[in-house]
Write a protein that binds this DNA or RNA. Sequence first.
DNA 1: GTCTATAGTGCGATAGAC
DNA 2: GTCTATCGCACTATAGAC
Lengths: 189, 189
Amino acid sequence: MARWQPGTRERLARAALELFSAQGFEQTTAAEIARSVGLTERTFFRHFADKREVLFDGQQSFTQAFLDGVEAAPPGAPPFEVVASALRSAGRFFDDERRAFARARQAVIEANPALQERERHKRAALAAAMHAAMLARGTADPAASVAAETAATVFSLAFQQWIRPGEDRTLAQIAAGVLAEVRRFAAAG
Amino acid sequence: MARWQPGTRERLARAALELFSAQGFEQTTAAEIARSVGLTERTFFRHFADKREVLFDGQQSFTQAFLDGVEAAPPGAPPFEVVASALRSAGRFFDDERRAFARARQAVIEANPALQERERHKRAALAAAMHAAMLARGTADPAASVAAETAATVFSLAFQQWIRPGEDRTLAQIAAGVLAEVRRFAAAG
DNA sequence: GTCTATAGTGCGATAGAC
DNA sequence: GTCTATCGCACTATAGAC
């Protein structure tokens, strides 16, 4: 029998969301989360740089979904098409199974400004990753920046809509609609 | 004679930037900033909700510059034109006199992730203000959201370029170029 | 204006896996 | 022996409560 159970991060993340949902983010201490899964506060902070970070664990994998979508676009495709491909790929990542989880998580975030800040930071990190990917495929600045920021913005707007109560379209469908709106916006006037 | 010296916030903000520049954000305590202008830590936190906030004091006034630009656009102008007008107005706000200050401030922010987070939060606040202004002038969602987010994105990208060493174009000029790039991006593909 | 809880850090010790 | 996850303790600064 192993001395430590595997999946410590995941257990901490799950317990954190439950406690935050039940009693609020500020009312929950890091020590409490750790204790609830049989660990100490010090171990919590070994896994997460700060208390907020425990809610943003999956970030890396969905950033990867964007990058996969960038790679899936044919070489020489215009930036707009590359962004569309990235959004489709991300849309596939957030399947319907994740929606309930995303809603619970978002409710916690929306109740706390410090968590909203962290979420915006993650959005910026996504844009930075997209930017690097655009540069890597030969798109120069400022086009690369504009494409990357647009991808992050469209995703963010689409995601907000995706988790709205009653919404049942897929994230990919919604994102495609928002991206079309960007085109309309830029064409008019 | 006044009981307190006026401009307490400004003196704190100025002293904070100096200390942060000289010895770093984390190495500077709120108490130290307060002491350096003859006040107590408690007074510092009466003026600023947290230590980071002292670097983001001017936010409200430049958000107003955006909103003035929105109002300056003729009724019925397409969202793209409204955004262009807002960016011109904001460009006027950041005159050349502010550039050196902005550079010093940005150097501090770039050295600290927590400050970058706050900056992104302010960018989001700007987008929210623009969103409300677009709705108020009759632009419905999702067009209003797209316009507001684009305004914030273009400003952010243009601002980064504006404070780059050696850059001497005005912010308005740079922003106009970035906005044109958005149009190109959305038209191609 | 003081008092206090909690976030977060630094360092050393321990205990298994390899 | 090394490596890594965990714990324990002391500590500071932030930030909010009283």
